[in-house]
Design a protein around this nucleic acid. Structure first.
Lengths: 202, 202, 202, 202
DNA sequence: TATGAATGAGGATTCATTCAT
DNA sequence: CATGAATGAATCCTCATTCAT
């Protein structure tokens, strides 16, 4: 039912969202100007208002888009026949692959930073909701790990998720910052190994 | 040699820095207005300019102060006679204790966020330098762990530090956000346990 | 090649420059506020920033514009077949005629005042350069007068120029201040007479 | 009747006035800050308020002081037995000598500039009054020259005064700007010669 | 749709001035 | 008298947003 017209519109909105993400990442919400975004998107500033009501809407769109991508990723679960640690590695690989294509969105959002100057206050709801959703998805996976007996029962699923996500973000951030085009597999494996086995010598 | 005058001045500067930290945390660099900071510090806005040349200097002071506290903490190493994991726990406990007294500075800085909208660009140097220093301090500790045979030789000291710091930040952030007045000991132990033993069931 | 757009833009810039000249004359550089200029130009204050980067640029534009007018005037020399004193009178008449149409610019600039509070320091270069150029143009004419034997050889061309320009400015200033719509011819003649013959009775 | 106390006070006021003159010359009225003046006078800023009610009063004092010096100079007339042109030269020499000692006041006031950004408006009265007084003093002298038959009757005393003062200012300004410690005699003579004989070759 | 032009609201910064000491 | 500290009133400038074309 989507006309060619709608598609084109959606595509141009998407271009603006990506440009905005890139600017928001670099400057933060308050630091990013509509002019910055327009320049990045190769539009005139007023043109942005044909696609979004105002700056906040653009920001919301960025947040939503990131969330959408992430949720879509988590909705396709890892093959259940794999053992727990392989499932984690599987998810991570897909995550890294996605991060590679949607760089700015991920640097902005997944890689532990958020758009900090807003997160805590004005738009916190959406932003933290997403963070929470991401955490929840992993928490769910951890709960399964506990069920299956793959995870030690000493900690809660929530704590496991917190730890896993934080390590993942740290390594992913480093990876993205350093160019991050390759070594994706090793990254995923190293994270899972560290998380599962810990650092202690045996 | 420091006169009472100088002391008073330093004290008031300190008050402004703490107020600023609190505001920067909530609003980010660009989002924080001098009015916000002044209100928080209970000064008139122009009064701030008697203590700092401009907004950026206040920000720098906040960053520096955090770094100073942290470095001071790491300069007093854990008792070397303790085994490696106890040393980590020892450091963490001191870190949490400090975080409890310098709440805003730590939420802002240690808890993995930085003042994001600046970090990436304008003031990146100081900010990331501190992050790097923090990391380096832990990396040093990890290197000792490897030497002593307490850590598995599979990963580099840098990777261990990255993982440890990220978990610490995540838990500390949660702890600070949730009020965080107690349970300090358990937090430290849980982090060390997760880091050392990993999540896998034995 | 100049589109209608460009023309319109240049015209509006010009209007602002004239308004600014008028304000700078009355208030000096520091005393003139952007609000003053905007009010005079019938714009909102921020609108000025669409045309000039900041106050200093407006000031520079004023200085430049004055210089441009003056240089253009001096580039069309007096008919060489006229005797020296008639040539001086010719130039003066054209100068007074121009001053009549570009009142504020001339009061500000030619009439010996400059925008004093800047001249000496911040923007001295442009401003004094123009003053120097004006002087140089007259000096050149005086050198010709010396060559032709019309001027006594006792003084240098530079000194003659200094004297002539100062008298001219003084009378022109008085003339501009007093309304100055007529008597232009007499002014020019009186200045030349005083300059050439001196005040002494014969 | 003036106690030692009063003398000291007057002396310190004087120091401030001179410092202020220097600053006003360089920066103009609006451009000069109380801090600038205080620094130049080697006082703290609030100390100035022990001597003057506010900035405007300081400015008025500067203007007054200049006028006072000038009036005092003109009140001691040239020896009446001298011929007219020698009297002019006599006055000029005294004027240059005074200018040498009260440099800033003269650069500011006599040398054709005034504190331009105020002159025209806020404080115009005092300032232009002084200018007028200076002119009037010379006009008076010119009237005598006319009476004595030393000046051609073609122009009014006012016009002669205007011309003479403008030339004087121009040369004095140049002299002051170029260091101006010597050649005082020649300057005075040259001005008188130019004014009396004119530039034309005989 | 797209854009040049314009502006109201607001933010950083300066400055004359006051006041307690 | 002198000064450190503090502040209200500007002033320059930016930015999100609107609107006519």
């Amino acid at each position: 039912m989507a006309s060619r017209r709608d598609d084109a519109l959606k595509w141009r909105r998407g271009r603006i969202v990506e440009a905005a993400a890139s600017v928001f990442v670099r400057r933060g919400y308050h630091g990013a100007t509509m002019d910055d975004i327009a320049r990045e998107a190769e539009y005139s500033t007023p043109a942005l208002y044909n696609y979004f009501k105002n700056k906040e809407e653009i920001f919301r769109a960025v947040v939503m888009e990131t969330g959408r991508e992430f949720v879509a990723l988590m909705d396709q679960p890892a093959p259940p026949e794999l053992p727990f640690d392989r499932r984690l590695a599987y998810i991570l690989r897909r995550l890294f692959a996605l991060a590679e294509t949607k760089r700015d969105l991920f640097v902005a959002f997944v890689a532990q930073r958020g758009f900090c100057d807003l997160e805590a206050e004005d738009l916190g709801d959406d932003s933290t909701r997403h963070n929470a959703e991401a955490l929840a998805a992993f928490e769910h996976e951890m709960a399964r790990g506990l069920d299956e007996g793959a995870l030690a029962s000493g900690e809660s699923a929530a704590d496991y998720a917190t730890a896993f996500v934080s390590i993942t973000k740290a390594f992913m951030f480093r990876w993205l910052m350093s160019g991050g085009h390759d070594g994706l597999e090793q990254q995923a494996d190293r994270i899972v190994r560290l998380f599962m086995n810990g650092a202690a010598a045996r």
